[in-house]
Design a protein around this nucleic acid. Structure first.
Lengths: 338, 338
DNA sequence: GGGTCTGTAGAAACCGGTTTCTATTCGGGC
DNA sequence: GCCCGAATAGAAACCGGTTTCTACAGACCC
């Protein structure tokens, strides 16, 4: 009924705790167990449905086999759609590498708590935007990787190449004849801090536009603009023919407001958004997106973390950057001369 | 740097481990500590930034202060939008009650693993649809509550009142003159098993329609129908004026296909969906929904679990049912006489 | 036959906490 | 001054595992 202990298994098999532990952990380092005894022990384990406590075993053993996952596991209400995908990829890769991923729900806005509150071999920090918490983790000396977020001195960071993604989006639009391309920025703050991508995309937009000799839109700066005001100003007044949106939620909001204001997509303006997902494919017009490949960032992050844990030298100076991908659908079209 | 132990705190304060433990746990049961000594200990704790290991303390103490959360924390790719909301509500309420919620990512489709793999006071199982895993948990004797899913003999279950929700939806449509109302069912299987709501909504639809003397649609049964085929048959051929969709993802798929087929919502048919969320408000037409209030189910679930853990008698025979809510938006309209 | 090496497995220490048991000091009643 | 109980705090046991240390049996060699 209740969970049974190593002692109970040992008693049932008529051996000592140590022998059971050795058999279960396949300890062959200078030791061996007679096949017959091994059989008896394994039978007892099976009969009692024994499984060791995942955490108590971490006390004595050097390797815990545990990876702690920090951060908003329960995604925020209006959070991006890509978050779950990324975390899932990371977890699956760690699982495949034989690690058990574990997390405790500690509110990041609560009293400054340590993370992790248990012993583990490494830490994954998805979508980080809490510098204080990160600094504490950094000081702990544990190997950690910040996935889709920045790291401090001792950790690694894997992020998306926002410059390349912006370039992908703008090239796509410029190739199709667009010259006045507005950017709808996000000013959502998570726990009082912005996600790095907000500033990165905003800045890349300015640079890439300038590089093409085009004027950036008025509203790509730091102050918040309502969707309706944005569309009135940029599309109706300034005559922009295309909009790049910070993420899917903003793109959806823009699409809704455009419909309400009598603006058609892509006839009156083209729309392209960061993040891809089920919704982008389901809505009409289907949204052209800059996808953030979850598989790629997940795999790269886990590879990096495993290297750190193995003590191999890794790139810590600069974040590893994952390429973004253009997914062309119906919301962008060519304009023939202006 | 590395995490420090109770012993280190004790040494620094010049006292024994037991005294530190007593001070930190506010042990006053027949014991007391001189204010001056308490001060010194607390100072040492602060200086060393000490926090006890969350799991190791569970070994000896009767109360662990831990709640395990089973299930798909990393939600499935195309999963419903309501899942995160519900889990978050549950976690926040447990947190408020002083419990630490913890989860390990164990693939539910993997080798049959026990859950939880550590000692805890109770278990939360959100969105359950894995009977085998649940049966094991049930046998463990731990207090547990199945949130938005069914339980076995020893656990409690809190689900939504699907019958009432279907009634809400159909009454809304019938009041507005609809008589031919089709139902678009889901046949998604999660880990080989269906979520209880699939059968519940399907069945309730049949009953409520019959109760109103109306004929249910052809396609509300168990076999899968493509959205296009569904719309051709039900709307174009059979002349249905309204559709009730199993969830938001299916509603989105229906909206997309309708647009592609030249069917307008709500002019050509009204659409109402289960689940509510950001997307329902963002798309056009805004979707009329049967909302599944996350706060209500979260609060009720936690209340129930805490009662079980306190040894109080609770309702185990039947699931507790949470009322669903009608959110009227733009996708449904009245038809004036037929 | 004695010494040594190897295979096998139990005993015991240990991890980091909580709880129980025990010891000492102090104050008060006589 | 002595006895006793309350207040205070250390010592030690314990939780459930892993790892190290130790012990014993048998094989092999000389």
């Amino acid at each position: 009924m209740a969970k049974c202990s190593l002692k109970m298994v040992a008693d049932r098999a008529g051996v000592s705790k140590s022998t059971v532990s050795r058999v279960l952990n396949k300890y062959t380092e200078g030791f061996s167990v007679k096949p017959e005894l091994r059989e008896r022990i394994l039978r007892a384990v099976q009969e009692l449905d024994y499984e060791p406590d995942l955490f108590i075993r971490t006390m004595k053993s050097k390797k815990t086999g545990l990876i702690a996952c920090q951060g908003e596991l329960v995604t925020s209400r209006h959070g991006g759609f890509e978050r779950d995908d990324i975390t899932r990829e990371v977890v699956n890769h760690l699982d495949a590498a034989g690690y058990n991923v574990c997390s405790t729900y500690n509110k990041m806005d609560g009293k400054s708590q340590y993370f992790p509150p248990f012993k583990c071999d490494g830490v994954v920090v998805p979508h980080n935007c809490n510098p204080a918490r990160l600094r504490k983790l950094d000081q702990s000396g544990l190997p950690y990787v910040s996935v889709n977020g920045l790291a401090c001195g001792n950790g690694c960071s894997v992020i998306f190449d926002e410059r390349q993604g912006v370039q992908l989006a703008l090239d796509h639009l410029i190739e199709r004849g667009h010259r006045k391309i507005a950017y709808y920025n996000a000013l959502r703050r998570i726990n009082g801090k912005q996600h790095y991508s907000i500033k990165a995309r905003q800045q890349a937009y300015g640079e890439v536009m300038q590089h093409h000799g085009l004027a950036p839109s008025d509203y790509y700066g730091d102050h918040f603009v309502e969707v309706e005001d944005f569309l009135s100003h940029e599309i109706k007044a300034n005559g922009a023919t295309a909009v790049l949106a910070y993420d899917l939620t903003l793109a959806l909001a823009l699409m809704g407001a455009a419909r309400d204001m009598g603006l058609r997509i892509p006839d009156d303006f083209s729309l392209i958004s960061f993040n891809d997902g089920f919704v982008a494919e389901a809505i009409r017009p289907k949204l052209t997106c800059i996808a953030l490949p979850a598989e790629d960032i997940g795999k790269a992050s886990v590879t990096l973390l495993l290297q750190m844990m193995a003590g191999e030298p890794v790139q810590k100076e600069h974040p590893v950057k994952i390429k973004e991908k253009l997914v062309i659908r119906e919301s962008t079209r060519a304009i023939f001369d202006r």
